[in-house]
Amino acid sequence: MNSQTLKKIRAFRKELHQEPEVSGREQQTSLKIKAFFEALNPDEIIEDLGPHGLGVVYKGKEKGPTTLIRAELDALPIPEIGNHRHKSKNEGVSHTCGHDGHMAILCGVGMELAAQGPEKGKVVLIFQPSEETGLGAAQVIESKNFKQIQPDFAFALHNLPGYPKNEIVLKKGAFTAASKGMTITLDGKTSHAAHPEDGRSPAEAMCKLIIALEKLPEGIPYFSLVTVIHAQLGEIAFGTTPGTAQVMATLRTFDNETMQTLTARAEKLAALIASEQGLEFSISYCEEFEAVVNDRVPWELVNDAAKELGLKRKHIRTPFRWSEDFGKFSTLTNSFLFGLGAGKQQPQLHEGHYDFPDEILQTGVALFTAIVKKLNH
C-alpha cells in the first residue's frame, strides 16, 4: 500500500471517529462509506443489507470463489474521554471498540482492489450494522439482497488491546464466546407495607435467583459463566409491599451447544423458584451472540498470508470470553475471525480513552489483500 492510500484511510478513519452512530442508527456512517466507494467505481454496491448495511463488490473475469470481508458500522453509547483533535462530536457516543478502524481497513482493501481487481470469482466488502447488539449479522444474512452474495469464505478481524501492535492472533475452532442477555420477571401481588401477609412479595425469590444463577455453571463440564448484571424489586414506595421483580443476567459459553444447556438450566431454575414462592414468571432474551468458530481451511490461508508478510503470529489456546456477532457468518460458510494487536499499552475496548491506533491500519489492509490474492488470483 502506497503512502497516499495510507494517508487517505487514516484521514477517513478520523472522520468516521468524529461522527459515531449507535447500533441501528448508522445511516450517516453508511452514506459516508458509500460515497467513499462510489469514487472508486467498484463493479457494484449492494444496499439494504439489513438497516444501513451495504456491500461493495469487485468481480473477476473468471469463475471462482466469493470472498466476503466484513467490518462493522456501529459505535457505542459511551462518552469519549480525551482531547485529541478528532474526538467524537456526538455527545455520549464513541468508537471505543475500534469499528472506525475496521471500516478504514476495508476502505484500504477497496482501494487496493480498485487498482488491481480479482482475476476470478468476486470479493465483497460488507459494512454491517448493529454488531454491538448482536442483531446486525443476522439482519445482513436474512436480507433479500444477501442472496446475491452467497459467500464461499468469510473473513473479519478485531483489534486487540493488550497484544503488541501488528501481531496477528490466531486460533482454530472457537475464537470468541457465545453470550446472551436473560431477563427474568417475577410477578406476585402488591399489598400495604403494614400488611405484607396480604400480598406476595418476590423479594425472597429474587435473592435466591441472584445467588443460584451464578452457581449454575458448577454442574456443567465445559466453560460457562452467568453474571447477574442488574436486579430491581418493586418501586420506591415505603407504604407498599413489592409485587414485581426483575433479574437480568448474561450467560456465556464457548460453544453453542453448551449455551443451550446453560439456558435450559437457567429457565428450569427460574420456574422452580417462582413455583416455590407462588409467583408467576416470564423470561426474555436480548443481545444474543453465537460463538465464533474458525474453520481449518481459512485458518491455513490467514496463517500462511501472515507468515509470508513477515508478521508476528500468536496462536492462542483458549477462546476470548467476549462475543462477536461474526458467529452468524461462522454458521453460514467457511469463516475466520482473527485478532490484530493494537498495542500492549492501548486502553481496553469499550473504555472512554480508547482510540484505534492508526499504526495498525496498513497491516490489516495488507493481510486482507494477501488473503484475496490467495483465493481470487
Rank of each mutant, 00 (worst) to 15 (best):
K7I: 05
F12A: 05
E19A: 09
E21N: 13
S23V: 06
S23Q: 10
S30Y: 02
P42L: 08
D43L: 07
E44P: 13
I45Q: 13
D48L: 03
L49W: 12
G50N: 08
Y58A: 14
K61M: 14
E62C: 11
E62G: 11
K63E: 15
T66F: 02
I69E: 00
R70A: 02
R70H: 14
L73A: 14
L76W: 14
P79Y: 05
E80F: 08
G82T: 04
G82P: 10
H86G: 01
K87V: 08
N90Q: 12
N90D: 04
E91T: 10
V93C: 06
H95T: 02
C97L: 09
H99K: 06
D100K: 05
D100C: 11
G101D: 01
G108R: 08
G110L: 02
L113N: 09
A114V: 00
A115L: 00
P118A: 04
K120Y: 04
I126G: 00
E131A: 11
G134D: 07
Q139D: 12
S143W: 12
Q148N: 15
F153M: 05
F155N: 03
L157F: 13
L157P: 03
L160Q: 07
K165H: 10
E167R: 07
V169F: 03
L170W: 11
F175R: 12
A177F: 06
K180A: 15
M182E: 00
A194P: 05
D198G: 00
A203H: 07
E204G: 01
A205C: 03
M206Q: 10
C207S: 13
C207K: 03
A212N: 10
E214N: 07
L216N: 08
I220Y: 09
F223Y: 15
I229L: 06
Q232F: 05
A237Y: 12
F238L: 14
P242K: 12
G243Y: 02
Q246C: 12
L251H: 05
D255C: 11
T258Q: 12
T263A: 09
R265S: 10
I273A: 05
G278P: 03
E280C: 09
F281K: 08
S282Q: 13
A291E: 04
N294S: 14
R296V: 09
V297W: 07
P298W: 05
N303K: 14
A305F: 06
E308I: 10
F320N: 01
S323G: 05
S330L: 06
L332G: 01
L337T: 00
A342E: 01
G343W: 00
H350E: 01
E351R: 06
G352A: 11
H353C: 02
F356N: 04
F356L: 08
I360F: 02
I360M: 01
L361R: 09
T363Y: 06
G364P: 08
I371C: 09
V372W: 05
K373D: 11
L375W: 03
L375E: 14
N376D: 15
